[in-house]
Each structure stands twice: as structure tokens, then as C-alpha cells.
Computed example of a mutant assay.
Amino acid sequence: MPRNEGTIDRAIRIIAGLVLISLVFIGPQTVWGWIGVVPLITGLVGYCPAYRLLGINTCALKS
């Protein structure tokens, strides 16, 4: 599976995912924090299915 996320994009997704997941344990403590798993996984893998559908590519590597 080719990457379609750049380094900065991936870093932002990983940080946002971790922040959202932390809300499950601290803060409002609602299950909605688990939505952070999505940006965390896409950031770690470097591939976003939504980017594929929309034709977006923030990765500097050539396909």
C-alpha cells in the first residue's frame, strides 16, 4: 500500500490521536476519545483511505 501522508501530516495525526485517546482516561472521560485511534493508526501507517478517495497526497515521495 503506497503512502499518501507526508511527515508533518503524520506527526500531526499521531499527536492528535494520542491527545484524543488521553481524553478517555483524563478530562471528560467519555468513549468519544477512542475516535483518536483512527488518526493514530493512519499516522503510524502513513496511509489515509479518505485521502485516496479525494485524490490528496501530502507525501513527498514519488509513487
Rank of each mutant, 00 (worst) to 15 (best):
R10M: 06
I12Q: 01
I41W: 07
G43K: 04
G27L: 08
P2E: 15
G36M: 03
N4I: 03
I15H: 07
G17Y: 13
Q29G: 10
Y51G: 04
V37G: 05
V31Q: 10
N57K: 15
L40Q: 00
L20H: 03
W34I: 11
C59M: 11
P28A: 12
W34E: 14
I14V: 09
Y47A: 08
W32E: 14
T42L: 12
R3F: 05
A11G: 01
W34T: 13
I26T: 06
L44G: 05
L23A: 06
N57T: 08
G55S: 12
A50Y: 09
I35W: 12
V45Y: 03
C59P: 02
Q29W: 03
T30H: 10
G36A: 09
P2N: 09
G43E: 12
I8E: 10
V38S: 02
I12A: 01
I12G: 00
M1K: 12
I41T: 03
D9V: 00
P39N: 08
N4C: 13
P28D: 06
L44F: 14
L20C: 07
G43A: 06
T7I: 15
Q29K: 15
L61T: 08
W32S: 07
E5G: 00
K62A: 11
L23G: 02
A50T: 15
W34F: 10
G46N: 04
A60D: 11
P2H: 05
P49I: 13
C48W: 12
I56A: 12
P28F: 09
L40C: 04
M1W: 14
V19A: 02
N57G: 07
E5S: 04
Y51K: 10
I41D: 03
A60K: 12
L20G: 00
T7D: 13
V24I: 13
L53K: 12
F25S: 05
V45A: 05
L54A: 08
A60M: 11
Y47W: 13
L40I: 01
G33T: 10
Y47L: 10
S22W: 09
T7V: 14
I8N: 04
K62N: 05
I14F: 04
G17C: 07
L40N: 01
N57Y: 13
L53Y: 11
R10N: 04
A16H: 04
S22V: 06
G46W: 01
V38P: 01
I35R: 02
A11V: 01
S22I: 06
G6C: 14
V31R: 15
G33E: 15
L20T: 01
L23M: 10
I12P: 01
N57S: 15
I12H: 00
A60T: 13
G33F: 15
I56F: 14
N4G: 12
G27E: 11
W34N: 08
A11L: 07
D9H: 10
G46D: 04
F25K: 01
G33V: 08
I41S: 03
P28W: 08
N57I: 08
E5W: 02
V31N: 10
Y51P: 00
V38T: 04
I26N: 02
G27F: 08
F25P: 00
L40M: 06
G43I: 02
L18E: 05
T7E: 11
I35F: 15
C48R: 07
I56Q: 14
I35K: 00
K62F: 12
T42I: 12
L18R: 03
P2W: 05
V31F: 15
Y47F: 08
R10F: 10
P39T: 01
R10K: 11
L61A: 09
A60N: 09
Q29H: 13
